[in-house]
C-alpha cells in the first residue's frame, strides 16, 4: 500500500519479526504460569512487593480523602442517624447486661468442665494496602509479610468476624483471599443446630452455604462459625449469620464489614495434632500389669524382668 510507505522499507519487516517474538514470549509466559504456577506466583508476589509499598505514600492520602468524602455524605442525615443511634444504644444496654450475665455463666461452666481453650491463638495486625484491582477477584493486600512470620493459609479477621485467609506471602506484603472470592471454600458450623456446611464464595457480598446435612434445622439468623475441619482454620471464629434469599437458597451474611476493611488481624494458627492413623486397636493396656512379653512373643510374669523394670510396683504382690 502506497499510503503506508511512512513506515519505512526496512522498519516494517523488523517490526513484524519483533511482534512475533513478543507474542511468542507472552504466550509462553502464560503457559509457564499454567504449568509452573507456584514459581510464577512467587514472581508476582515479588513484583507486588516492590510496587505496592512504594505507592503507599500516594495511597494513604487518596484513600483517606475518599473515605472522608464517604463519611461527609453521611453528615447530611446526621439527625436521623443520631436518633437511630440512641435507639440502638438503648437496645444495646439491654444486650450488654445479658452478655455480662452470660459471660459469667459461661466462665462458671467452663470452670466446671475444665475446658482447655486454645491458648496459642495470637494475632498479627496489618493494614490493608490495596485491593485486587479486578472486578472478578475479591482479595486485599496487607502490609505484613514473611518477615512478620505470616504463613500461607492463616485465617484473617477484622474486629468481629472472619474476612478470609492468607494466600500468597511476599517479603513485606501478603494477600488475603476474601471469603466472597469465587475461589474461597471453608468448612463452617451453623449454630445452634450444629450442622456442618461448606461456605462457597461466589463473587457476591453473601457467600453461599452448601452441603448442609439437614437444611430444615437451619433458620434465618443462625450463627455461623468456622468448624476447623481439615485443619484449615482455627475452630470457633465467628463468620456471620444465615440468611435465606427469595429462591430459598441459604446464604451467609458476613459479620465482618467488607465495605470498610482497614485493619485486619491475621490469626497465628498452629498446625494441630491430627488423627490420621485409622486402624489402631483400642483395648486394655498391653501387656497387662504384672506381665510382660518375652522375646518369643509369649506372656510371662514380670518377675523375671525385675532387673529391667524395677519401678513397676505391681510386679511382686
Amino acid at each position: 500500500m502506497a499510503r503506508d510507505s511512512y513506515d519505512g522499507t526496512y522498519a516494517r519487516p523488523v517490526r513484524r519479526l519483533l511482534l512475533a517474538v513478543l507474542i511468542l514470549f507472552l504466550l509462553s509466559l502464560v503457559l509457564l504460569w499454567r504449568i509452573d504456577n507456584p514459581r510464577v506466583e512467587r514472581i508476582r508476589a515479588a513484583i507486588v512487593d516492590r510496587y505496592v509499598p512504594n505507592m503507599e505514600w500516594v495511597m494513604a492520602p487518596v484513600t483517606g480523602i475518599a473515605r472522608m468524602a464517604e463519611d461527609f455524605q453521611s453528615y447530611r442525615r446526621l439527625f436521623e442517624q443520631n436518633q437511630e443511634l440512641r435507639r440502638e444504644l438503648q437496645q444495646m444496654r439491654a444486650w450488654r447486661e445479658a452478655a455480662l450475665q452470660l459471660e459469667q455463666e459461661n466462665a462458671r461452666l467452663l470452670d466446671l468442665n475444665r475446658v482447655q481453650l486454645d491458648p496459642e491463638l495470637t494475632f498479627v495486625t496489618g493494614i490493608v494496602l490495596a485491593d485486587s484491582g479486578s472486578p472478578f477477584r475479591r482479595s486485599v493486600l496487607l502490609n505484613v509479610g514473611a518477615r512478620d512470620g505470616i504463613l500461607d493459609g492463616w485465617a484473617t479477621m477484622d474486629g468481629l468476624g472472619v474476612v478470609g485467609r492468607i494466600s500468597g506471602v511476599g517479603q513485606r506484603t501478603s494477600r488475603v483471599l476474601l471469603l466472597t472470592d469465587a475461589a474461597s471454600r471453608i468448612p463452617v458450623t451453623i449454630l445452634p443446630s450444629g450442622q456442618q456446611a461448606l461456605m462457597l464464595g461466589d463473587n457476591s457480598a453473601t457467600p453461599m452455604l452448601d452441603f448442609v446435612e439437614d437444611p430444615q434445622d437451619v433458620a434465618a439468623g443462625d450463627r455461623i462459625i468456622t468448624s476447623g475441619d481439615g485443619g484449615l482454620f482455627p475452630p470457633g471464629l465467628l463468620v456471620g449469620q444465615v440468611v435465606f434469599t427469595s429462591d430459598q437458597r441459604m446464604r451467609a451474611r458476613m459479620a465482618a464489614d467488607l465495605q470498610r476493611l482497614n485493619f485486619l488481624r491475621v490469626m497465628r494458627s498452629h498446625p494441630g495434632t491430627t488423627l490420621d492413623d485409622p486402624a489402631g486397636l483400642i483395648g486394655p493396656p498391653w501387656p497387662p500389669a504384672g506381665m510382660r512379653v518375652d522375646d518369643d512373643g509369649a506372656l510371662v510374669p514380670a518377675d523375671a524382668a525385675r532387673a529391667e523394670a524395677p519401678e513397676d510396683p505391681d510386679a511382686t504382690p
Binding site: 505507592m55 475518599a66 473515605r67 494496602l129 485491593d131 484491582g133 475479591r138 457480598a205 465495605q259 476493611l261
Partner: peptide, 11 residues
C-alpha cells in the same frame, strides 16, 4: 493502575 489498586470499594 494505582487508582485501581486503592482499597476503596471492596465489597
Amino acid at each position: 493502575i494505582t487508582l485501581k489498586l486503592l482499597p476503596l470499594n471492596l465489597a
